[in-house]
């Protein structure tokens, strides 16, 4: 991520120390992760210690300090999805992408996470990719769906 863009985001929030989380969120959603240089820049501009920024960036799951894939896969492992076969969906995704939950593949194509209930249990087992819900997943459909992502 170029630092000019980071500066723009910081300025959009008037370099307000109280907007720290908002600034981090903006960078996270644009860049998909928080590079160290960006955090140092924020620290300098907002006059907030880097220790504080790190504490926040590591506290919330919404932030990542390592590069994330272009597509974020969330497999629901909640109770309803679990009994409807979420494990098989997860196994299929792990096999096809070669990554485990919490990991990103080498081509930065996919990042995989598990979640506990996406709030649409009737559609279970549910797989969410980039915010889009794919319901009633079978292993075959899971494989089909993954193919659509570049």
């Amino acid at each position: 991520m170029d630092m000019e863009r980071v500066d723009q985001i910081i300025e959009k929030h008037n370099s307000e120390p109280s907007s720290l989380i908002q600034i981090l969120l903006d960078i996270q959603s644009e860049n998909r992760w928080l590079p160290k240089e960006a955090l140092e820049r924020i620290s300098e501009k907002l006059q907030v210690p880097l220790t504080r920024i790190q504490q926040i960036a590591t506290f919330y799951k919404a932030f990542s300090l390592v590069p994330k894939g272009r597509h974020g896969i969330h497999i629901c492992m909640g109770t309803a999805c679990h009994v409807r076969g979420a494990q098989r969906v997860l196994d299929t995704v792990e096999e096809l992408t070669g990554i485990k939950p919490g990991e990103t593949d080498a081509d930065l194509k996919f990042s995989l996470e598990t979640v506990n209930c996406l709030g649409c249990c009737a559609l279970g087992p549910v797989m969410e990719i980039d915010g889009e819900i794919h319901g009633n997943m079978t292993p075959a459909e899971t494989a089909e769906t993954l193919k659509k992502y570049e």
């Binding site: 210690p49 880097l50 220790t51 504080r52 790190q54 504490q55 590591t58 506290f59």
Partner: peptide
């Protein structure tokens, strides 16, 4: 963490992560 921040005002050490995974972490440059 607090001594470094409040008394020395260096912020060389902080906490990262949360819950049972929380640990101290030095900022290498500082």
């Amino acid at each position: 963490v607090r001594y470094c921040a409040e008394v020395k005002k260096k912020h060389a050490i902080g906490f990262i992560d949360r819950g049972t995974h929380r640990e101290i972490n030095f900022i290498q440059e500082i």
